[in-house]
Write a protein that binds this DNA or RNA. Sequence first.
DNA 1: CGCCGAGTTGAACTGAATCAAGAAACGTGG
DNA 2: CCACGTTTCTTGATTCAGTTCAACTCGGCG
Lengths: 191, 191
Amino acid sequence: MINTFSDYFEKYGALSGETKIAVESISTHISLPGNEKILTAGSTMRSIYLVLNGSARFYYYHEGKEITNQFFFEGEVIADMESIYSKKRSNYYIQLLENCQLIEIKYPELEKLYRQHHDLEHVGRMIAIACYLEENERNRSYQMLTAKERYLKLLETHPDAVNRVNLGHISSYIGITQVQLSRIRSELASF
Amino acid sequence: MINTFSDYFEKYGALSGETKIAVESISTHISLPGNEKILTAGSTMRSIYLVLNGSARFYYYHEGKEITNQFFFEGEVIADMESIYSKKRSNYYIQLLENCQLIEIKYPELEKLYRQHHDLEHVGRMIAIACYLEENERNRSYQMLTAKERYLKLLETHPDAVNRVNLGHISSYIGITQVQLSRIRSELASF
DNA sequence: CGCCGAGTTGAACTGAATCAAGAAACGTGG
DNA sequence: CCACGTTTCTTGATTCAGTTCAACTCGGCG
């Protein structure tokens, strides 16, 4: 169970006691109601959030339609890295899908810790690499899988998503319409 | 112009003179003929390569067909991060497309330097984040663009690829058949 | 000269999008 | 606790983008 940012970081490498204390010292526990947006296009993201409880999605608009690009569940970290790193206004939205218990870290403070604690920066690099590999795998699934196969893969890797999230969000996540996803589901159900 | 690994790293953040000297001390210049494979499925990747001259592609097989997942040109770094980090056998291939001048760094030696030089680890983290963001953008292009739009986008972002690489490699990169890409090109040419 | 790989083109087919209508589920206020 | 409106999901009919299979062109090279 991931209850603190230290827990989260330590999945990717060891941290000294000192570093863990420093990380905890900049963490704040917050709780927010479902539906709340923690990022809106036009504003800049300055914090990252560890999900203790609840879920969220990252989305954007294209030709008037919402497209969900990411889901966040318990133990995962909510962020728009693009906005955080560029310090520019985001083009994206992040919305809570349920009531959430979160731990917030203001990014500039984490950056300070990265500079002070080499072990933390190392773990940060490992996390970024893991994120890169995950995105790359998703790209490969667009190259080689059909819509139905991508859905089946999501069932395996993110069973949470399928049970707790709207069909429309899931369908845009795997790059199809919700009509098509509905057909895929009914086809699968008939076995 | 990127002539050394230090040049490459410094695109993402400053390095001390000492760190740069350390990086150069583990770099080796090599040149290899076009068509050579520097990674074959079943073997483990242990080095990364900066491209001074030439090009390469990263590919794999799916249902008997080659699918190209990445291109590498001058100033870019060739690696299969999955194999390098897991230290396991790769499922992928990396093939040089032209005669190449490369700079090789054996990964375990770079890892040592990461541990010794905090500034280098910081830059490494920035690079990983940039790679993540790039892959994420590619995912968004699968979510919202048609095959033709993805090709036009590749024309903008990687004009090199379109001129120097086989149609078949490009088509699998953007997730379509080479037949379809040929049609797209002839349609575009008619304007 | 003849072969070979790369690219193009045509015809038939298929997976997925679109448009549209209806059914189910959900939340809110009376 | 029911009635209503709204949102979410399903289903059918049609259209369209992209695949498949196959034949043909073209340039390079032994």
